[in-house]
């Protein structure tokens, strides 16, 4: 039932577009790579991380995945390198050039 958006690239003909331009399904933006918008990325220093998760809610791009109450590696395919998480970490477990 969900739309196969792989068929909806910018070269799609009019017959291939979904009716009314609706997208049945959810979260298809994952297919869109916003990680290339910046070169600077935060670095996660796992040893310093206390798993307080304070970095998680500040990310505008949902790039800090959480599973079983623990954060995982940055999603660099989508991270735009805003640096907010660097300042949110009380333990210096995230670093990024130019952000203190």
């Amino acid at each position: 039932m969900a739309a196969d958006i792989s068929k909806l690239g910018v070269k799609a003909g009019w017959k291939d577009l979904t009716e009314g331009m609706v997208i049945p399904g959810a979260g298809t933006s994952r297919e869109f790579n916003t990680g290339e918008w910046s070169t600077d990325k935060p670095e996660f220093i796992e040893e310093k991380c206390k798993q307080c998760l304070l970095c998680v809610p500040v990310c505008p791009d949902s790039c800090i995945p959480v599973a079983d109450y623990k954060r995982g590696a940055f999603d660099y395919e989508h991270c735009k390198g805003c640096g907010i998480c660097v300042k949110a970490c009380p333990f210096g477990a995230i670093t990024m050039e130019g952000v203190n």
Binding site: G27, R30, F32, N33, T34, P60, D61, S62, D75
Partner: peptide, 13 residues
């Protein structure tokens, strides 16, 4: 989901 096109550091999202 990630992959939206808001500015880096956007407060809205």
């Amino acid at each position: 989901a990630p992959g939206h096109r808001m500015c880096a550091g956007c407060g809205g999202t």
